[in-house]
């Protein structure tokens, strides 16, 4: 009887099936090593987090949040106001770059705020990079002109833009950028996203939360020759569910968890 129990127990263990990972799904680190993740070690969008994320062999790239300062230079920062995560106060769009270059995160490592320039882009070459463009200034309640953002990107003088994908939820910015760049539309609503794919054929894909899209809906977007990036993926269970939808990109907040499942 004891052996039968052991056999049943062993069979139960063996019956646990491994998640089948679609090999075409690229793993992308959200804000480099994850947003608000206890295991991320470094502050989101920091140079240290970028370097660490890119060191992982199977990490295909990263997603970074981009904001423009008052002189048209680009900086990597997620939140609307600097006071939430750094030693400074105010919105990036209203601050001088000289001031921003002295800003650092309120973390143990005191990582510096990163300016998006050719040094950073050199580090990012050969990797897929999503740039989430922030077009709204919450301090002045105004929308930043699309042409200014486009000029700021052009001023980076990038040799090749093939690996760079720009994310926006603003129609005007989508139209302005899609002439020259690869642009994904970001939404929480699948129907709206699908409509955008029809209304703006030049849009290359959709960025959507894991809970807002099903596997069939992912396939429906892909059938239109568009790509799908799923984000807000954190737990092992959520990551497996997202993998099973077979998106083109998985933007994860727990990079080690996603790489672990893919391995």
């Amino acid at each position: 009887m004891r052996y039968i129990n052991f056999l049943v127990f062993a069979m139960c263990l063996c019956s646990c099936t491994k998640t089948i990972i679609d090999k075409k799904t690229n793993i992308i680190g959200h804000a480099a090593m994850g947003l608000n993740s206890s295991s991320s070690i470094y502050a989101d969008n920091s140079m240290e987090a970028i370097q660490l994320a890119l060191s992982f062999t199977k990490c295909k790239g990263i997603e970074l949040d981009v904001q423009m300062d008052n002189l048209g230079q680009l900086w990597l920062y997620h939140d609307e106001n600097l006071s939430t995560k750094t030693n400074a106060d105010g919105c990036i769009n209203t601050i001088d770059p000289d001031v921003l270059s002295t800003v650092f995160y309120k973390t143990i490592h005191h990582e510096k705020l990163v300016k998006l320039d050719h040094h950073v882009l050199e580090l990012l070459k050969d990797k897929t990079v999503f740039f989430d463009l922030r077009h709204f200034n919450s301090c002045t309640n105004s929308i930043i002109e699309s042409s200014k953002i486009k000029n700021a990107i052009l001023a980076l003088e990038v040799d090749s833009l093939e690996n760079y994908i720009f994310i926006t939820s603003n129609y005007e910015l989508l139209e302005t950028l899609s002439e020259q760049f690869k642009v994904f539309y970001s939404t929480d609503n699948y129907e709206q996203g699908l409509q955008i794919m029809f209304d703006y054929p030049e849009c290359d894909g959709l960025v959507i939360r894991n809970v807002s899209i099903t596997a069939d809906e992912v396939h429906a977007i892909q059938a239109l020759n568009k790509e799908v990036a799923i984000f807000e993926v954190r737990s092992p269970k959520g990551t497996k569910i997202a993998f099973n939808k077979a998106p083109d990109y998985l933007i994860t907040d727990e990079l080690r968890t996603a790489l672990s499942i893919a391995h």
């Binding site: 990551t239 672990s260 499942i261």
Partner: peptide
Amino acid sequence: LRSTFGTQQ
């Protein structure tokens, strides 16, 4: 637990 049982590593 998360890694060993959640991600099978």
